[in-house]
Amino acid sequence: MQIYLPIAEMPVNALLILAMGAAVGFLSGMFGVGGGFLMTPFLIFAGIPADVAVATELTHIIASSVSGSIAHWRRRTVDFKMGAVLITGGIVGSGTGVVIFSLLREAGQIDLLVSLTYVIMLGTVGGLMLWESVSVLRAQARGAPLSLERGRAQHLWLHGLPFKMRFRQSKLYMSVIPPLTIGFVVGVLAAIMGIGGGFIMVPAMIYILRMPTSVVVGTSLFQILFTTSFTTMLHAINTQTVDAMLALLLILGGVIGVQFGVQVGGRLRGEQLRALLALLVLGVAVRLALDLVIPPGEPFSVEVKMGT
């Protein structure tokens, strides 16, 4: 069933997009990640222009982070104060990201920017995740439980920074500079990659901010909801690349897939899940990297701008 996308100005197979939405939704339900980092490349592989894919995927992330946010809000596992600081950084970051996005789009380098950012981010995060989960699995095989606890001493310099603030929910008294910076970085990446950034935000909260794990996921979802909503607005105003029809298909497929993913994910062990996710992330990174390295079959690309 073909459906015409008004902003991308091309017909797509509606069932294919629904299936992709469901598949990514399934994986995100299973692994507890937003899935933007999978969906945007999948959309690009399916022939959707990179700029439309990035901007539209954000709406899909909004929809999927809403249900998680509601659940965590009810359980009172959201640090709103920390969330607000992260969002402040996120809004500045997303603004910066959209400006970079627009500039490179004008210069005809948007595909390169998106691909390169993906290869670097996914390669790094996937590699780290795989390394960690493999060490845990090996340690378990040896019978020795590996401790993930790390000394606080190595982060002492963070406590020397000014503008300290008390975060009651996280039981932290620290400078606002680290969370502002993290929010900023995730905001930039959200605008360029069309992701929520949970897979960067969550480790950053645990290892850099040292937030208690109980509030990490809720606060991350809360910040993602706001940052992606803001970024979607910026893309809609600045680049007009949010395709409502594509968004509808993605959300529809996504919400169904998530429900099944959650059930399957519950039956797998944490380390196995993480190793699988790491392989998936690395797979996408390799696929994108190959496109950059292998000599293109068609050296020319043509962009059409209609005269007014």
Binding site: I62, A63, V66, S67, L225, A247
Partner: peptide, 24 residues
């Protein structure tokens, strides 16, 4: 999307939030 991008973007965001909530 082109004439009223603010309204369009806001509608997309609100509908996405609505869809996510409805699914829950």
């Amino acid at each position: 999307a082109h004439d009223e991008p603010f309204f369009y973007g806001l509608t997309c965001v609100l509908l996405s939030i609505g869809a996510g909530w409805l699914a829950t």
